[in-house]
């Protein structure tokens, strides 16, 4: 089931979102229902689990464990469906805050810091992958185990201090790492050299200005969109006008 959880979004779509993925992940457990794969209990449970579902993909493993447990405990279908529906919101918002808005940027920034400090390609790429996936796989494995352990009483697992406060601590660490990493990474990317050269000074002066401008334009234009336009002007200047 843990391996299947890695492909939980394999059939993500606008009709039932992650519903098919949940059914796909829970299915091995359902084989233990009375009558096996040919039994009515198996078919009814699989049909229930394939209905609309939405959650963060990593924390969905909590739902997979809890729903598998609830099905094998032969929880009344109405109660199970209500529980399943109630899980969507918390697992979505908690996962987004913990992973997409904290852990992933934190790991990216550590990789940028490694680059800035002079690490080679293998060290940077592997450093990022090992760090990120230590958290990623641990979260999925914990989710599946905690879901199975708690079943319908999943609120106890969701209320864990590290889960609620984790995003805050990770974000603080990431902010500090970001501040140190960006000057180092920028310095290496322009080729190193003396920090008082005109180009180095220009990078030091212009980067914060652009950063503040983009924060001011938040919601109106994305940074990558603005950069694409600026680079197009640079290409025009350097190839046609220069």
């Amino acid at each position: 089931m843990l391996l299947r959880c890695l492909a939980i979004q394999g059939a993500w779509n606008y009709e039932i979102l992650n519903g098919n993925g949940i059914g796909f992940c829970v299915e091995p457990a359902l084989r233990h229902l009375p009558g096996g794969v040919d039994g009515d209990a198996y078919r009814a449970a699989l049909a229930r689990q394939c209905a609309y579902f939405n959650a963060h993909p990593y924390l969905a493993s909590l739902a997979v464990g809890a729903l598998a447990r609830a099905e094998l405990d032969q929880t009344p279908p109405e109660k199970l469906v209500r529980f399943r529906t109630a899980l969507c919101g918390p697992l979505g918002s908690l996962g987004d805050r913990l992973v997409w808005a904290a852990w992933l940027p934190a790991c990216s920034l550590v990789a940028l810091l490694l680059f800035g400090l002079g690490a080679g390609p293998a060290m940077v790429a592997l450093g990022f992958l090992v760090l990120y996936n230590a958290g990623h796989l641990a979260l999925r494995a914990w989710g599946l185990g905690a879901g199975w352990l708690h079943g319908l009483r999943l609120a106890a697992a969701l209320g864990a201090n590290w889960l609620q406060r984790g995003p805050q601590y990770i974000a603080r660490g990431a902010a500090l790492v970001a501040g140190v990493a960006l000057p180092f990474a920028a310095h290496r990317a322009i080729g190193g050299g003396a920090s008082l050269e005109p180009v180095s000074l220009a990078v030091m002066a212009c980067t914060p200005v652009l950063g503040v401008l983009l924060v001011r334009l938040h919601g109106k234009v994305e940074g990558w969109q603005l950069l694409f336009g600026l680079l197009a002007l640079l290409v025009l200047y350097s190839t046609v006008l220069h």
């Binding site: 990317a189 980067t207 652009l210 950063g211 983009l214 940074g223 950069l227």
Partner: peptide, 26 residues
């Protein structure tokens, strides 16, 4: 290189500010 790095680092700085600003002290 300088122009490209200014652009990329500027986007990164604003991204850090926007993504992590929701928590105190960040």
């Amino acid at each position: 290189r300088g122009a490209l790095v200014i652009g990329a680092a500027g986007v990164a700085a604003s991204a850090v500010w926007k993504v992590l600003h929701g928590y105190s002290v960040t």
